[in-house]
Amino acid sequence: MSARLSASHAAFLGIVLAITGFILWSALSASTSLNNLIVVAPAALLLGVLALCIVVAALRSPDADPAPAGALGDLLLLAGFGIFCYALTHVGFDVATFVFVWAGIVMSGGRSLWVPPLYAAIFSLALVKGFGSLFPYPMLTLVL
């Protein structure tokens, strides 16, 4: 099975079905009126049926799911991005952006020792003073 349905595909279907089950359960617990379930119930039902069709089609297929390379690097950058998003309002927009952009350049293949941190510093400064000045909300910064 695993050869025909790749691990990431199985993970995706599993996550979606878990979310679907939770949303359906939550909506049913809140109210069973037609007005409340008019989109939730048919969408959840069809998602279940379609997931079954997709799994059956994948298992019947003579070819295995092609597994694109570079998953580990992508997941590392994604994890870094998640931490960066959280750090924006907890550490500061300026420092979080500087560290993430610097690390991101290095992870994406930037080789120079001094260009990535210099670029990250200038970019963070431009974002804080440019983009940030347009925000109608308060923005936490640590240095700038």
């Binding site: 991005f81 998640g82 960066f84 998003c85 959280y86 924006l88 309002t89 907890h90 927009f93 952006t97 993430f100 952009v101 690390a103 991101g104 350049i105 992870m107 994406s108 293949g109 930037g110 670029y119 970019f123 974002l127 983009f131 940030g132 347009l134 925000f135 109608p136 909300y137 923005m139």
Partner: peptide, 26 residues
């Protein structure tokens, strides 16, 4: 190598610009 992290950072900033809370970037 420079564009990807820079635009990713702007995406998170954009999320904050819309919601004004941590909910946007997350």
């Amino acid at each position: 190598a420079y564009l990807v992290p820079s635009v990713l950072a702007m995406c998170a900033w954009g999320g904050y610009g819309i919601t004004g809370t941590i909910a946007g970037p997350l």
